[in-house]
Design a protein around this nucleic acid. Structure first.
Lengths: 117, 117
DNA sequence: CCCAAATTCAACCGATTGGTTGACCATTCC
DNA sequence: GGAATGGTCAACCAATCGGTTGAATTTGGG
């Protein structure tokens, strides 16, 4: 359970898998149809789909001998929340940078004994 | 752009690196200070910082013999934009993010504890 | 000048990744 | 029933990953 951020980001780190996601964005598809535009084996695509499923980014559902894949943005949303937080804190970080510069200019040895000439 | 989505997501896929980012969220730090809360070698942290730098998520600046690391959310924003394409998830709320941070900082990824003797 | 500190480099290790191929289940259809 | 279709499994491969240790490099200080 609980697809972690590790698995989500790991899943997103591969261009093939991201392309699969964009495919599924348009429509739900069977595994063979997902594989069609790619130049690799069906087994490889099947593996990629497994990674995406385990990451919680898609859902797979067997109907007869066809396995349907559909997007499930839950995990994506989770990761998105995590990422957006860093954008929010940007001004804070900028302040910290100024602090750092000040420290450097004054030759303070608070963190290190970094004394400039 | 040097940092592709591949490298950004790959960088984010490791819990140690995400924890480093949350550290740098608070303040800019020297490499040794970044490494301090972790239970792995300095060289390992140095490698992680290299990955983050190459992904464009942080910037490193040498001052004397100290290398300062500061957050650079540009690449993060880039990836975030990509994810936004996947749907109209609910607007990101900061509360959820802070909850997430809390969970990560206190609960930790269980890869390591025993920070203090 | 020499030592200590800060950081990286280099070689190495086991585990994982992304891909292949061929065999193997299921299911559908004639 | 038997063959074709849809998909996964298993073994294998080279490449990368995340970590280690030890040596090297650069800088600062007495």
């Amino acid at each position: 359970m609980a697809h972690t951020l590790d698995t989500v980001f790991q899943a997103l780190a591969d261009p093939t898998r991201r392309r699969i996601l964009t495919l599924l964005l348009e429509d739900d598809m069977a595994v063979t149809d997902v594989a069609e535009p790619f130049e690799m084996s069906l087994a490889a695509i099947s593996k990629h789909l497994g990674v995406l499923t385990r990451a919680g980014l898609i859902q797979q559902e067997r109907h007869g001998r066809v396995v349907w894949c559909k997007l499930d943005p839950d995990a994506l949303r989770e990761a998105s929340v995590w990422m957006q937080g860093f954008g929010q804190f940007e001004p804070v970080n900028l302040e910290a940078f100024e602090l750092f510069l000040e420290r450097e200019l004054s030759g303070n040895t608070s963190t290190e004994d970094a004394k400039n000439t």
